[in-house]
């Protein structure tokens, strides 16, 4: 039987690329992304599920990466903020909207908000205002006062609909 500190071989499929890593079971997905894959765009604030800075997409759904173990993510498609911009560096429509609408100040919360919003808008491109605000209340921002985040996500949603031809 294995010892608690034995490492498990884990294959993480992040932004379409495979990372073969060896981690203790207690390694959270957030730490594995940052420490083992070198993807430090995913931020850690509270490490207990409250702030949402660590939000990433697993199987297309936004989840708290600090509350999932890396071993649980083996073989499942993961997307992080590093995967949003195009190969040529062109910003994702939502990133562009955050830039233009001043949806960020210090930027600490931004990767989490971007992944939350991308995950929701890809599933529900026509989501209503009230439902969108309720979902954005999942994450914390200590700078912006949220109004510009809401405005940025709304503007980004319109751009995403245009770029995917949804009307």
């Amino acid at each position: 039987m294995s010892a608690p500190s034995d490492k498990h071989a884990v294959a993480l499929e992040v932004n379409g690329r495979e990372y073969r890593i060896a981690v203790e079971p207690r390694r959270t997905l957030a730490d594995a992304l940052r420490e083992d894959c070198g993807l430090t765009g995913t931020h850690l604030g509270c490490e207990h599920g409250v702030c949402g800075a660590c939000t990433v997409l697993v199987d297309g759904a936004p989840v708290r990466a600090c509350l999932m173990l890396a071993v649980q993510a083996h073989g499942r498609p993961i997307r992080t903020v590093e995967g949003l911009a195009g190969m040529d560096g062109a910003l994702h429509p939502l990133q562009a909207a955050f830039h233009e609408a001043h949806g960020l100040q210090c930027g600490f919360c931004t990767p989490g908000f971007l992944m939350l919003a991308v995950g929701v808008l890809e599933r529900e491109p026509d989501i209503g205002d009230a439902a969108l605000r309720e979902i954005l209340s999942s994450n914390l921002c200590r700078c912006t006062g949220y109004q510009n985040i809401v405005a940025a996500v709304r503007a980004g949603a319109a751009r995403m609909r245009r770029s995917t031809g949804h009307g």
Binding site: P4, R26, H48, C66, M68, L69, Q72
Partner: peptide, 25 residues
């Protein structure tokens, strides 16, 4: 561990320190 949304916060705080974890997922 099921969703881990109560257990992992408690483990991160070390309020819970299970010796063995069995994943239901």
């Amino acid at each position: 561990i099921a969703g881990g949304q109560s257990l992992v916060p408690m483990m991160n705080f070390r309020l819970a320190r299970p010796g063995r974890l069995f994943d239901l997922n």
